[in-house]
């Protein structure tokens, strides 16, 4: 009889991007130690993070190991020791930003433990733009799809694929090329739980500025320059907003104003 999957989610206030990246790597490293006897050789461990959550997913944990998870999960979280961690409540648990929720399931059973002054359960939250919407997790195996329906792409690989796909589609639509190198995309990976593409433009006169200055201003704002096939900058840029795509025009105009402000003479 194969085991069931297990999931641990820590929901917190927005983490700095570098911290979310480091947290995901550290969680996987620690899980390999703490869950060594719980996950069979055929099972797998996966850690992922967004700006608001840190997630560990283990496949094939035998039914008899449920109690052991309840001991391992809080130990694992207590050992994270991320840069900038501090105690936010009386339990002594340290984390870079306040922790607001803990969800843990083994199959369809909650894994009960306490940490950061909170008790774990089967509830989490969807995307913040949707309002304070609680999401009930039926079982660990449905964790990623339940969050997907609540507009959260938990896995970095999913967000990256969504971002790449959206920029490629924008390139095709404009018959131009969106400059989106791996590094620039990676810098956006922890800024949005559900990246939605935005394409905006800027006044033609700004193209008179040195191209390297334009590119640097766009990259600092996490925007992506748009060029023609010969590599010449065009008066457009692509970017990502976080969440639903209602009110796209307001966002486009805001992003354009942010770029113009960054390129104004007083910003130098």
């Amino acid at each position: 009889m194969t085991g069931r999957d297990a999931v641990l989610e820590l929901l917190c206030e927005p983490l700095p991007a570098a911290c979310a990246r480091a947290a995901s790597a550290r969680l996987l490293e620690l899980a390999a130690e703490e869950l060594a006897g719980l996950v069979p050789p055929g099972g797998g461990l996966e850690a992922c993070a967004t700006c608001r959550r840190l997630v560990l997913y283990a496949t094939g944990v035998p039914a008899a190991r449920g109690k052991a998870l309840a001991a391992a999960f809080p130990r694992l979280l207590a050992r994270l020791d991320l840069p900038g961690s501090r105690a936010w409540e009386g339990s002594g648990f340290r984390f870079p930003r306040p922790v607001r929720g803990l969800a843990a399931l083994h199959g369809d059973r909650p894994v009960a433990f306490a940490a950061a002054g909170l008790r774990s359960g089967r509830f989490t939250e969807g995307h913040e733009a949707l309002g304070p919407r609680r999401v009930k997790l039926a079982c660990a195996e449905k964790y990623f799809s339940a969050l997907g329906h609540a507009s959260v792409l938990v896995r970095e690989t999913e967000r990256l694929a969504a971002m790449r796909g959206a920029l490629e589609a924008a390139s095709r639509r404009m018959k131009l090329r969106v400059e989106a190198g791996g590094e620039a995309l990676a810098a956006c990976l922890y800024l949005a739980e559900y990246p939605v593409p935005v394409v905006s433009g800027f006044p033609q006169r700004l193209l008179e500025l040195p191209p390297e200055r334009l590119r640097a201003a766009m990259l600092a704002l996490r925007f992506f320059p748009v060029t023609d096939q010969a590599g010449r900058l065009q008066p457009y840029f692509a970017a990502f907003r976080d969440g639903v795509s209602k009110g796209q025009r307001e966002v486009e105009e805001g992003f354009r104003a942010a770029l113009e402000a960054a390129l104004s003479p007083s910003a130098r």
Binding site: L15, R241, K246
Partner: peptide, 24 residues
């Protein structure tokens, strides 16, 4: 109307004033 806008939370670490902690 929050759903019509993009809200981002770029984080900073401790502020310059005594007692000012992290934020966004």
């Amino acid at each position: 109307d929050r759903s019509e806008h993009d809200l981002r939370w770029p984080a900073f670490e401790d502020g310059p004033r005594a007692g000012a902690g992290p934020g966004w």
